[in-house]
């Protein structure tokens, strides 16, 4: 009986250590909330730095990188358990980060100090610091990994930087307060969430031209691919809604309400479950994507921003 008890206990501990967590960055209080991915219960809360905003996994999924703005470092977490593994310091004010698809470049936007830094992805050695006009916010790459596109939230522009030369290739006006940006699966268009225009600007990046505007909702903010290589979701943070966009027809399929300032999103592998941070109410909401009902409301820290779990849908 005693032996059985220990076996059960050991199995439980083993399950606990391999249980999958959702990592939530609370930018307002410099902390991370870990939430059990399957029971939806908060399991841990710890301080990580001064302003953690965005996060992404390394190309090989071996680590989850938290961009720790103001603290000037990158924090590496175990992507399954959320435990801190290491820090890389002297990365200047990283706000939004990204790896180029060819895994050669690591790009970091400093929104506060109007600058984009380009590093070699293999060792995070600095290649170039590029000053830009105002508030570099989100970023996206073309599939060839020759260009990175940066939204300039403060100067209402979209900038393209040639990664080989680290020079600005072009800058175009794109509407009031551009934020999130994503490349369509066919590599033809950039979708830019333009907060002040309440919708998405569709940009033909080869011609550096806006070709269409898709109305989505007030404060159109950030994207997440659904995972079917066709649809993307966009959070309309000011209007408390999320819209599903068809990237082939470049139109909205559906819009559903999410109160509390929906911001960053994560989608389950089976594309049935959406997790979204609600910036203004210190909550993460979980949505059943088969009927768009909110199934769980999870309390987290102040101003939750980026979130991640390892068993997510494909990023396309």
């Amino acid at each position: 009986m005693r032996r059985l008890f220990f076996i059960v206990l050991l199995s439980f501990c083993a399950f606990q250590s391999f249980a999958e967590v959702t990592v939530v960055l609370n930018s307002g209080d410099g902390s991370i909330s870990l939430v059990d991915r399957h029971t939806y219960q908060p399991i841990k809360h710890f301080y990580v730095g001064k302003e953690p905003h965005h996060l992404m996994s390394t190309p090989d999924n071996s680590a989850l990188i938290v961009a720790d703005a103001v603290s000037n470092d990158l924090v590496f977490l175990n992507p399954t358990t959320g435990e801190i593994e290491k820090r890389i310091s002297r990365i200047s004010d990283p706000y939004q980060i990204g790896f180029s698809p060819d895994k050669k470049w690591f790009v970091s936007n400093s929104l506060r100090l109007d600058r984009v830094d380009i590093y070699r992805a293999e060792d995070f050695s600095l290649v170039a610091r590029i000053p830009l006009s105002s508030m570099p916010s989100h970023l996206a790459f073309n599939h060839e990994s020759t260009m990175v596109f940066i939204t300039l939230q403060g100067s209402n522009q979209l900038a393209a930087i040639d990664l080989a030369t680290q020079k600005v290739a072009w800058i175009i006006p794109v509407g009031n307060t551009p934020a999130g940006i994503i490349m369509t699966p066919d590599n033809q268009h950039l979708l830019v969430g333009v907060m002040g225009e309440n919708g998405v600007a569709v940009v033909d990046w080869r011609k550096a031209q806006i070709v269409k505007h898709i109305p989505t909702g007030v404060g159109a903010h950030n994207f997440m691919p659904l995972g079917d290589s066709r649809h993307v979701l966009i959070s309309n943070r000011g209007g408390d809604t999320i819209s599903l966009i068809d990237t082939q027809t470049l139109s909205v399929d559906h819009t559903f309400p999410i109160p509390g300032g929906p911001d960053d999103m994560e989608i389950s592998q089976d594309m049935k479950e959406l997790w979204v941070t609600c910036r203004w109410v210190k909550e993460v909401r979980v949505v059943d994507l088969t009927n768009y009902h909110i199934t769980h409301v999870i309390p987290v820290g102040r101003s939750p921003h980026g979130l991640f779990f390892i068993s997510h849908a494909p990023r396309q």
């Binding site: 508030m135 939230q153 403060g154 009031n176 307060t177 907060m195 002040g196 007030v218 404060g219 000011g238 408390d240 509390g260 300032g261 910036r279 203004w280 109410v281 101003s303």
Partner: peptide, 22 residues
């Protein structure tokens, strides 16, 4: 959240100052 979403954010949206809502 109530003050911000009902009073402050709409004013910032009206003035075109969305970049500073956070």
């Amino acid at each position: 959240a109530f003050l911000f979403e009902h009073w402050i954010e709409p004013v910032f949206q009206y003035l075109g100052l969305q970049a500073y809502v956070e």
